[in-house]
Design a protein around this nucleic acid. Structure first.
Lengths: 251, 251
DNA sequence: CGGCGTTTTGACAGGCTTCAAGGGCCGTGG
DNA sequence: CCACGGCCCTTGAAGCCTGTCAAAACGCCG
């Protein structure tokens, strides 16, 4: 279910990391690259549906997503679930777990997931030897906060239709930036139940809202294939354009 | 409305910072203290009701709250407002603005506010010379994210009564940790409208929910004075105990 | 005392949840 | 090859929760 590669340095070295080619990530200096390579101690493969970080547990590792989709979430005692955010390639997860006493949320794989594993014990080395990388980590934390802020606005002040449009557009843009999908089509690996839990709505109402959205012809969503046909119209429904460009570091 | 102290080093030096005595903050080494003292270039006084950081603007400074209450918020075009979080003494604001191109949210003073001002230009010095302080900044960012995560759960999955109880208890605990208030009573500087905008509810419904909460006798809120009389009952309504203790660094 | 911002209340409409049930798709096993 | 079960999507109906509208009471300050 959740297995480490097990072969020290038997995984793809950072020099050959496919994510490095992404235009949305900054380039590393040779020194940074060398450090990150030895900072990464393993590669983790997680099956879809498995939670590899759980609320209440202490995590000795920090992860970045190499490939696949996941999501951060919290559960209430009676089973209510709130999805906080989705994790895509190049996103970092588990930072809270390494800084705080224990995880305050869980992370589940939405598709088979490959993660780069970094030991908490070497995090201080990173901070003391590579301030630029430390800066990047802070940047990633600030960016995550920014995404949640926007999500918070959705749940608090946007209507069901607006927030649905906003989330879908946001995920679409993030996926596109990562080179996932083509011809305006992205494979969304989640179900309407996931969407409902992210939007803070019931499954039934999510379905009906989705229907209304599809009726505008701005988007289609058949099977798992999501496509945007009229981005301006979608952005108009969402109430705001999501096209925020931030040059993005990578650890 | 918004005035800097104007007298370089004419403000209280960090050695005499009243916040240093707080048990919830970690202690500085003499070297760290010396650095932070020269890192702080001014003290800013903001009137209640004034926004000193605005969405869309670029910020050259980073701030920590020395005294007073503020709140981070976002506005939609038609005037809808969502309060993202409250800022209390020892909290940091504006980090996003120094890392990103521009602010993605605004910050307004709820009471007269005193802020420590740090220049973005020296932030890199901090990262390269004092990794421990860099670590603290990351820690603060992670803590802020944790607070928003919890807030997100409230808006998405908690009932009106639960989320109201949760927010009030949370603010109460935060204020208490900072030594604000006594005898189980804290002065809350916000109105029901603020509460409504934080909870993602209408003013009317916030008022009625509040009424229901007060009817339980677990809390009282007269004028600006908020008091908790039955913390267990309040936590039970909130659905979860907010008593999370995290040793906390200070910059 | 008057004015303004805040709090409180009532009535009503509509959004959203819940309950319930049917349909489609797909992998498994007979 | 077909039946079955499980998961996901879809739809309708009923009723509660929440927002909106409207107005009055309250408290503070000039």
């Amino acid at each position: 279910m959740i297995v480490g590669n097990g072969r020290p340095n038997g995984f793809t070295p950072c020099e050959q990391c496919p994510l490095r080619a992404l235009p949305c990530l900054r380039e590393f200096t040779p020194e940074e690259l060398a450090f990150v390579r030895q900072f990464k101690i393993d590669e983790l493969h997680v099956d879809a549906g498995a939670s590899f970080l759980r609320e209440g547990e202490r995590s000795e590792h920090l992860y970045t997503v190499l490939s696949g989709w996941g999501f951060r979430y919290k559960m209430l005692d009676d089973g209510r679930r709130q999805i906080l955010n989705f994790a895509l390639p190049a996103d970092m997860v588990g930072l809270q777990g390494t800084l705080m006493h224990e995880m305050e949320h869980s992370v589940e794989a939405l598709t088979p997931l490959t993660l780069c594993v970094f030991p908490r014990s070497k995090l201080y080395d990173l901070y003391s030897q590579f301030p630029t990388l430390a800066f990047d980590i802070t940047w990633l934390a600030a960016r995550e906060e920014q995404l949640i802020d926007e999500h918070l606005v959705s749940l608090g002040r946007r209507t069901a239709l607006e927030r649905t449009a906003y989330l879908l557009l946001n995920l679409y843009v993030r996926a596109q930036e990562l080179g996932l999908g083509r011809d305006g089509t992205v494979q969304f690996p989640f179900t309407q139940q996931h969407l409902a839990d992210a939007l803070g709505m019931s499954l039934v109402h999510t379905n009906k809202t989705l229907k209304r959205l599809l009726a505008t012809k701005a988007v289609t969503w058949k099977g798992r294939a999501f496509a945007v046909h009229d981005r301006l119209a979608l952005a108009a429904i969402a109430g705001e354009d999501v096209t925020k460009k931030n040059p993005r570091p990578f650890i």
